[in-house]
Write a protein that binds this DNA or RNA. Sequence first.
DNA 1: GTCTATACTGGGATAGAC
DNA 2: GTCTATCCCAGTATAGAC
Lengths: 209, 209
Amino acid sequence: MLVEPTKKRSRIREKNEEVILKAAEIIFAQRGFGAATTHEIAQAAKMPKANLHYYFNTKEALYVHVLENILETWLSAAHDFDENHDPASALENYIRTKIELSRTNPYASKIFAKEIISGAPYLETHLRKVINPWINAKAKIINDWIEQGKMAQVDARHLFFLIWSMTQTYADFSIQMSIVLDKNKLDKTDYETAANLIIKMVFAVCGLK
Amino acid sequence: MLVEPTKKRSRIREKNEEVILKAAEIIFAQRGFGAATTHEIAQAAKMPKANLHYYFNTKEALYVHVLENILETWLSAAHDFDENHDPASALENYIRTKIELSRTNPYASKIFAKEIISGAPYLETHLRKVINPWINAKAKIINDWIEQGKMAQVDARHLFFLIWSMTQTYADFSIQMSIVLDKNKLDKTDYETAANLIIKMVFAVCGLK
DNA sequence: GTCTATACTGGGATAGAC
DNA sequence: GTCTATCCCAGTATAGAC
C-alpha cells in the first residue's frame, strides 16, 4: 500500500510563504530590490534567514513573486471600466478604486513605482504583454465614446498617464504629503479630498457631468 | 617668503567633482542610494573607484551632494509663481517649467522620487525646513486669489500634490509611457501634449480662462 | 521543516607607490 | 592628484545537524 503523495502544497508552506511575501513587500517598498537584504526581510517575517531560501530559492525569485502579486491586484482593480458603463461612472469608479488601492495597498504601489523608475528591469516583458493590451482596449473604449459624442476630445493614453500619476502619488509620496499637511499619516478624509479633486479635473477636461 | 596658500579649489578638482556628480546622478537615478555601487559610478565617470573617495569621502556624502544640487534646481524653477502674476499665467508658467524640467532633467526627478518613496531618509530635514515654507507661501497666494474672486475654491495643497505628480510622472515613468506609446523615447510633442492637458485640467478645476 | 554555522562574493573604503 | 592592491564587512546562499 503506497503512501499518499502530497498532492497539494502543505498547509505550513502555504502559511509561511504568505508571511514571507507580506514582509518582503514592506522591505522591497522601502529599499527597492537591490538595496533590500534577505536578512531584513527575514527579520520582518520573524524567521531565520535560511528559511527564506528554503521557501524561495533566491532573492530575485522572491521579488518576482511579489511583483506578480502586485500586477494581479492591479489588473483586477480595473475590471469595471468597460463600454457598458457611461464615461462618467466608468471614470469615477476607476479613480475611486485606484485611490482606495493607494490607501490600502501603499507598498504595492511603491514597489511598482521603484521598478518602473529603475527602467522596469524585471517588469518590461509583463508590461508589454499585459498592460499594453489593457490600455489599448481602454483607449479604444474612450475613443468610441468621443466619436459617439458622449465626451469631449481627449488623448486617452495621456489621460491614463495622468490618472495613474495622480492616484498613485497618494501612496508613493504620502511621506511628503504628511510633512506638508503637518500630520503623522494621511487619513480617510485626505483620500476623499484627493479622489473628489481628481474626478473634478478629469470630468472637466472630458466635458462630463 | 611664504608659499601662497591655495585660496580657491583647484581647477582640476572643480572639473573632476563635476564629472563625478554627473555620473552619480545617472547611477543613483537607476539604482537608488542603497543599490548604487561606487564602482559603477566610477565607471560612468571614467575613473578608478579610489578617485571617487578622494573627492567625496563616502558614498553617502556624494549622494547628499547630488540631492542638494537637485533641490537647488527645484526651487529656482519656482521663482515666478508669485502674487504679482494672475492665477492663470502663474499656474501655466509653473506647469510648463515643471514639464520642461522633467524633459531636460529626468535623473534629478527620479532620484528625488526614489528618496521620497523610501521615506525621505536623507531629505526629511530639508523638506521640513525648505519645501514646507515654500508651499505654505504658495498656498497663501492661492487662497488670496480665491478670496479676491480671481479663481474658484480649491484645496491649494492638494492642487500642488497633483501638479507635482502629473508633471514629474513624465520623467519618472517615461519608460512605461514609451512602452505604451510604442516609441523608443518620448519626444518634444509628447511633453507639449502633456503640458497642455495638465494646464487644461488645472484651469478647469480653478475656473480659469 | 527549522535553524546555526559557514562558505563565498561583492562592495566600501584605504594604504601607499608613483 | 592618480591608481593598484588590499582590507574588511555585509550580504547571498548553502551545508548539515536537529
